[in-house]
Amino acid sequence: MPPEGLRRLPPGELVLRARGGDEAAWAALTERYSPMLWAIARAYGLSRVDAADVVQLTWLRLVEHIGALRRPARVGTWLAVTARREAARCLRERRGRFDDQPLEVLPDPAVFDAVLAGRERLRAVMEAIGALPDLCRQMLRLLALSPTYAEISAALDIPIGSIGPARARCLASLRKRLEEAG
């Protein structure tokens, strides 16, 4: 299990560290992306054994190509595309072994791309929120729950009149962090 500090690093930083041989960075990458790879492989209708092969081959491909990644921050997308290709290859091989069995309809790659992009954006937002000062994190959480300014004022023990400006500063800081990460 990787140290907590590594878990919070952006994907691109983890890739750069893994390129340099940092085993903890590799552990953080596998912890972060293995569930997604399993979901992709299983979405192709693969057995547990075949899905495990796809996940393992996907990680092997990253080991083989990590030095060639042009956009390390997009490692999640690279892994998803590679997993889809490995899953499709596995299905083709299975078709060759079992010609008399119908092949399942493959999931639409655009759906995977959209889900992956959404997950990457959500992860980036959550990481950026986690890096904000405590007051900003608390305020943004409360605002997401839609309480009134009076409730926010009471919860954070700040004047109602300072909520709007503080909210604007927190959102500006969040935007800046997301632009830097993206």
Rank of each mutant, 00 (worst) to 15 (best):
Leu132Glu: 04
Ala168Ser: 14
Val111Arg: 12
Ala80Asn: 06
Ile163Thr: 07
Arg74Ile: 00
Glu104Cys: 05
Arg85Asp: 13
Leu178Ser: 05
Leu106Gly: 12
Thr77Val: 13
Pro133Arg: 03
Ala124Thr: 06
Thr77Trp: 11
Val75Arg: 02
Ala87Phe: 06
Gly164Ser: 14
Glu86Val: 01
Pro72Tyr: 08
Leu171His: 00
Arg119Tyr: 13
Ala124Tyr: 00
Pro159Cys: 09
Arg74Thr: 01
Val115Gln: 15
Asp100Phe: 07
Ala131Asn: 04
Glu151Val: 14
Asp134Met: 09
Gly76Trp: 00
Met139Asn: 04
Arg137Thr: 01
Ala88Thr: 12
Ala114Met: 11
Ser146Asp: 07
Val111Ile: 11
Cys136Met: 08
Leu142Phe: 03
Ala154Met: 06
Leu145Arg: 10
Asp100Cys: 04
Pro107Ser: 03
Leu142Ile: 02
Ser162Lys: 12
Ile158His: 05
Arg175Tyr: 13
Leu135Glu: 05
Leu174Asp: 09
Gly130Gln: 04
Glu151Cys: 15
Phe98Pro: 00
Lys176Val: 11
Leu143Thr: 03
Leu122His: 11
Arg177Ile: 04
Arg92Trp: 13
Ala154Leu: 11
Ile158Ser: 08
Arg119Ser: 12
Arg94Thr: 05
Arg74Asp: 10
Val105His: 14
Pro107Lys: 02
Leu135Ala: 07
Ile152Trp: 11
Met139Gly: 02
Leu174Ile: 09
Arg137Lys: 11
Leu122Val: 00
Gly130Ala: 06
Arg89Ser: 12
Arg119Met: 15
Arg169Thr: 06
Gly164Gln: 10
Leu142His: 01
Leu143Trp: 06
Arg95Gly: 04
Ala110His: 09
Ala128Lys: 01
Arg167Tyr: 14
Ala73Gln: 15
Phe112Leu: 08
Arg119Thr: 11
Arg94Leu: 01
Ala154Gly: 09
Leu122Tyr: 00
Ile158Lys: 05
Thr82Cys: 14
Ala154Cys: 07
Leu171Thr: 08
Pro102Leu: 01
Glu151Trp: 12
Ala110Ser: 11
Glu127Ala: 13
Leu103Gly: 05
Ala117Arg: 13
Leu116Gln: 15
Arg95Glu: 08
Asp134Ser: 14
Leu145Ile: 04
Gly76Met: 04
Arg97Met: 05
Ile160Arg: 15
Ile152Phe: 08
Asp157His: 10
Ala114Trp: 07
Cys90Arg: 15
Asp99Ile: 00
Ala110Glu: 14
Arg175Asp: 15
Leu142Thr: 00
Val111Tyr: 09
Leu156Arg: 06
Ala150Phe: 12
Ala73Leu: 10
Thr77Pro: 01
Thr82Lys: 11
Ala117Val: 07
Val115Phe: 12
Arg74Cys: 00
Gly118Arg: 13
Arg121Phe: 00
Arg141Gly: 01
Ala144Arg: 07
Thr148Leu: 06
Met126Tyr: 06
